[in-house]
């Protein structure tokens, strides 16, 4: 049967998708500095080693600070844009939304390079906050895509009812609209946070001498003896991002349930 052939292909494809990810914990617990088969036995020393690296801790803190700021800023900008695009027709809508969504299709290196030259030309020192500038640009389109769905699902008559009953536009937004789109906002915060935390190219160009976590990882990949520690770190990051992701998916589904729609797939 045709369906069975496709099923076998689908399973094979999932193996291809998961192959690198499954290797990560395997080598993180492997008792050898060489990343190759056969495995040499179980150890947790790479995880213990992680605790003693100051540069790594700084990079993690730096990345967390950048990711949190990016998530908040990108989601705020996303709320404005998604609300405007879902609810209003305005002159130049296509062009304006096109520009805001452009980073979605633009190669990241172009975004990085163009911000870098302007910052250098203005004589601004690179640092964490210049990375935030770039990451907000990159994450806002993702936030808009998620929030757009949330705003489109909103029943306008609820807002009209609130206005008719004497609430102002702002109090209507705060009391009716915001609670209804809250699951979308949470999932937008989590997705932006995850993207920023993992982003390399923009951070690589704009970070100056305070590396983010991916930039730090990049510098460590050159030293073979550091690789097992990197694998241990990667495993921790994998578990954390799975947790965050499940949280985002849970909150998205709750949002879908709240507005009474049919579930139609993931958040991308």
């Amino acid at each position: 049967m045709k369906g069975r052939g496709l099923y076998a292909y689908a399973v094979g494809y999932l193996v291809f998708l998961y192959a690198p990810v499954l290797l990560l914990p395997l080598f993180a617990f492997n008792d050898s500095t060489v990343i190759a088969f056969p495995l040499q036995g179980f150890t947790t020393r790479w995880f213990a080693d992680l605790a003693g690296i100051k540069a790594l801790h700084d990079a993690v803190l730096n990345s967390l600070m950048i990711a949190v700021s990016t998530a908040i800023l990108a989601t705020c900008l996303g709320v404005f844009a998604a609300r405007a695009s879902a609810r209003f027709a305005f002159p130049g809508k296509k062009g304006i939304m096109g520009l805001i969504m452009l980073p979605l299709v633009l190669p990241e290196i172009i975004v990085a390079v163009s911000l870098l030259v302007v910052l250098l030309q203005l004589g601004i020192n690179l640092g964490a906050w210049t990375v935030i500038l770039g990451h907000v640009l990159l994450c806002t389109p993702f936030a808009i895509a998620i929030l757009n769905a949330a705003f489109l699902a909103l029943d306008e008559s609820m807002e009209e009812a609130s206005l008719d009953l004497g609430e102002t536009r702002w109090s209507t937004f705060r009391l009716i609209t915001l609670p209804l789109v809250m699951p979308g906002i949470i999932s937008s915060l989590l997705i932006s946070f995850t993207i920023s935390l993992d982003e390399f190219i923009i951070a690589f160009f704009l970070t100056g001498n305070e590396p983010t976590l991916p930039v730090y990882l990049w510098s460590q990949l050159r030293f073979p003896q550091k690789i097992p520690i990197v694998m241990a770190l990667g495993t921790i990051m994998l578990v954390l991002s799975l947790l965050l992701l499940s949280l985002a998916e849970y909150s998205r589904r709750r949002g879908v349930a709240r507005t009474g729609r049919k579930d139609s797939g993931g958040f991308l």
Binding site: C76, A84, F90, P91, K93, I96, L137, T140
Partner: peptide, 21 residues
């Protein structure tokens, strides 16, 4: 409607204009 939409969209638009365009 047009003006309200434009006002709403202006913060992300200005950001994209300043940081990208």
């Amino acid at each position: 409607e047009g003006a309200r939409g434009l006002t709403l969209v202006s913060p992300p638009f200005l950001y994209a204009a300043l940081m990208l365009a």
